[in-house]
Design a protein around this nucleic acid. Structure first.
Lengths: 245, 245
DNA sequence: CTTTGCCATATGTCAGACAATTAACATTTG
DNA sequence: CAAATGTTAATTGTCTGACATATGGCAAAG
């Protein structure tokens, strides 16, 4: 591991980068212990606070965990899909909210990705998957649900759909795409009629998955995509009208 | 913004979390300036090093940038797709390498996702997209290329394919999936014959995109997926043999 | 043998200081 | 007057040394 730093630039950043590379390259094994903060400070020829800043940077990326006490220290984390998903969802949400992505673009991406899951889900869905799909349908069919709760349940349905494909890598990648849409969806007001239609489409999709028939499942998903776009178009129209008034 | 901290737990983490929430919720606007480190230290009733650790955590997530000098400080970053992609690629790579994901699973996910791009790419590909696809084909058709260089060019081809769909959200999500495969692909030894076949399939795919015909494009992609799996199967067989010897 | 208390080690936090950078202001000079 | 130059204040980056806190291991007491 390189321990000589380029002056002129942020030490803690360079140190974090060096250690990160060592982790990514497998030089530091999972669950391996890093040298103590004082050791690192000596090696890199900086003070302990500087080392600590570097370690905090790595901790923020879930690359290491720290433990106090006699046998404590900083340990290389086994990055779990779960941890990484949280991070991904935050990032995806921020990207959508800060970059003024059209509803259309985000929606297109999301449904295109979900389409990719359908054939796999048809082949692999287990009774447990079908049960959680049905549970979410029942939940967002409940009377008197707020729009926000309806959205949350909708998102859960879509995540269940993705999970039904039985591929953890796929689930991880799509979690961001699906969850990040929630703030955008929350701007939609769902009438009883539109809720009914969505639920009917979810139901049709679930039946097709149960039957293991990709063709009608894709058709249902496409219809859902078209309808979501339509609803999204309405909110944009309303917003445009409000702005121009 | 809450400024009272739960004792018993890591201050810098709590502070980072508090500020992060303020950013995500839009409470702190993009390009807005955070209070100075001393200010934050006073508000949260902690010392400046502690505040700094919190800020470094946020900086590691690209949520803020810092600037020295009289009008300096910490500013809320407009998260760009580009910055977020780097991060995503690192995370995706680590996930694959640390969680002993089968080559098959990763491969399936990647090609399923790429399939989702094909119809869009057929409709939207520009001459520039086609040119970069062709450029990569030419590059990995070069004689005497190392396996690693061949892989890198292959990855670049696939990224170009994704970009041809003309949806930045999609590109962002798939960058991780595509790039993270590279270390796995690097374990494959490509013979002249297998390279030839891959190039032929890339060529066919590019022609189909140019013609705007999704059907043959998907067929080419599926064939590519099957062939990649086959090559991956070989390396697994070899590895198994070596382990049992 | 078990429990208790001490100790060494490591991270978490603090206080105060100095260095380096930068923009704005004041001053000098042509 | 205008331009170049020096000064100052604010802010981040870094260092030093210290104390607080958590935790495993070890030794002594019961």
């Amino acid at each position: 591991m390189k321990t000589d730093l380029d002056s002129e630039r942020d030490y803690s950043q360079q140190i974090a980068h060096t250690i990160r590379d060592a982790i990514v390259s497998g030089d530091l094994p999972v669950d391996g212990r890093l040298p103590s903060e004082s050791d690192l400070a000596t090696r890199f020829n900086v003070s302990r606070p500087t080392v600590r800043e570097a370690l905090k940077r790595l901790a923020a990326q879930n690359l290491i965990r720290t433990q106090r006490g006699a046998t404590g220290g900083a340990f290389v984390n086994r990055l779990s899909f779960e941890q990484a998903q949280d991070h991904m969802v935050t990032t995806a949400t921020l990207l959508l909210s800060m970059n003024t992505v059209d509803f259309e673009t985000a929606c297109e991406a999301r449904f295109a990705l979900e389409r990719a899951c359908v054939p796999l889900a048809c082949a692999r869905r287990t009774p447990a998957h079908l049960a959680s799909l049905r549970a979410e349908i029942a939940r967002h069919g409940t009377d008197g649900l707020s729009d926000e709760a309806f959205c949350a349940s909708d998102v859960a349905f879509h995540r269940a759909l993705v999970d039904a494909a039985g591929n953890p890598v796929l689930s991880w990648h799509l979690a961001g795409a699906v969850e990040a849409m929630q703030p955008l969806m929350n701007m939609i007001t769902f009438t009883a009629r539109s809720r009914g239609r969505i639920i009917a489409l979810h139901d049709g999709l679930t039946r097709a998955l149960e039957a293991g028939k990709p063709r009608p499942a894709l058709a249902a998903l496409d219809e859902l995509a078209a309808y979501t776009l339509e609803l999204g178009g309405e909110i944009r129209a309303r917003r445009g009208a409000r702005r121009s008034s």
